[in-house]
């Protein structure tokens, strides 16, 4: 079996890192509110859109200027706050009032989906209407050409692909320190595990939920900001496919642990392009002609969702290997 090129591996690592952040956010909100946030994929696209609009403003002025590279800090940072606020809006304006009214899980899920549809359409509207200085029109633009090229030995890649994993690691370590070293971080973990006990102890559980939603949105914004350089074009509807990979990574991670989410997200994001390209190479070799299957890449995520739910619904973190083997036997029909 031939390994994909180093460039492709770098790309896969970058994609895996961004998905890890997305799964982390989804899992965080799931653990607090107990609702799978169907709008989480679109939150990433909001981050990508923020980046697109920023580049539209500054590219013309700063092209070639070293100052241009400060964009790699400014764009994710702005996306963090903008998308954090969007996610907070979803929680405060849509989900929390419904939770307090005692609406059941199905109602909450359709409300999250409703928010997603509203968000997608507002994004579409914005991309159509917002004045564009550089592109002329914002809708459907690709940012692939706006990423700085980086050459290392004989490997040529782009800056965002190298930065994404580093940023993901920094954010993860920061979050870990926040959750284990600060009183509020510990209170977050406590509220997630046992909200009623936390309330009795005087912890403001609702504030914890608010921070969780803001953080989840913020991380989606950062991921989306980097993804904007990787995806073919920035289009609002893309979130409806990204969400499948996010669910795949989160379910693989068990939907109950942020570390599981990071691992699951990275694995799904890294393996999705890698497995596809390797299968494509193998098929082409086997059939003796070029076969293209990359358009089916996302099916990998669906496969992960199905296999994990069938064999180990608790995901990686809740894995009991003996039980998994038993299930495999039952599903396969052996023994």
């Amino acid at each position: 079996m031939v390994l994909p090129s180093p460039e492709f591996i770098i790309y896969s690592i970058a994609y895996g890192s961004s998905l890890a952040l997305l799964c982390l956010g989804l899992t965080l909100t799931y653990m607090t509110t107990k609702v799978p946030n169907f709008a989480h994929g679109t939150l990433a696209i909001v981050g990508a859109t923020v980046t697109l609009m920023l580049i539209d403003r500054v590219y013309y002025q700063f092209r070639g200027d070293p100052l241009y590279y400060s964009l790699y800090i400014a764009a994710p940072l702005i996306a963090f706050f903008v998308v954090g606020l969007v996610a907070l809006t979803e929680y405060l304006l849509v989900l929390r009032p419904l939770v307090r009214k005692g609406i059941g899980i199905i109602g909450l899920m359709i409300a999250a989906l409703a928010f997603d549809i509203i968000l997608v359409n507002i994004l579409t509207m914005t991309l159509h209407l917002a004045p564009s200085e550089y592109f002329g029109k914002l809708i459907g633009q690709s940012l692939k050409g706006f990423d700085a090229r980086v050459s290392l030995a004989d490997i040529t890649t782009t800056f965002s692909r190298l930065a994404m994993p580093v940023v993901a690691v920094i954010l993860t370590v920061t979050l870990h320190l926040f959750l284990t070293r600060t009183k509020f971080g510990i209170a977050m973990r406590a509220s997630i595990e046992n909200p009623s006990l936390a309330r009795v102890l005087g912890i403001d559980v609702d504030r914890v939920y608010i921070v969780s939603w803001f953080l989840a949105g913020g991380l989606a914004g950062v991921a989306g900001s980097f993804l904007s350089f990787i995806i073919e074009s920035v289009k609002p509807a893309a979130g409806s496919l990204v969400i499948v990979s996010i669910f795949a990574g989160s379910i693989l991670g068990g939907l109950g642990s942020i570390y599981g989410a990071l691992l699951g997200g990275f694995l799904v994001g890294f393996m999705e392009p890698m497995a596809t390209i390797m299968l494509q190479n193998a098929l082409s070799e086997f059939l003796g002609r070029t076969v293209i299957i990359t358009q089916y890449q996302r099916l990998f995520s669906l496969l992960v969702v199905i296999v994990v739910l069938l064999l180990a619904p608790q995901g990686l973190t809740g894995l009991n290997y003996r039980e998994v083997i038993g299930r495999v036997r039952r599903v396969v029909g052996v023994g």
């Binding site: 009183k183 510990i186 209170a187 973990r189 406590a190 595990e193 046992n194 009623s196 006990l197 936390a198 102890l201 005087g202 912890i203």
Partner: peptide, 18 residues
């Protein structure tokens, strides 16, 4: 469920004095 199982003993005590 009268303690936070996923938290350390120290963290549990910190939460009790929140």
């Amino acid at each position: 469920d009268n303690v936070f199982a996923e938290l350390s003993v120290r963290e549990n005590l910190v939460m009790a004095s929140y």
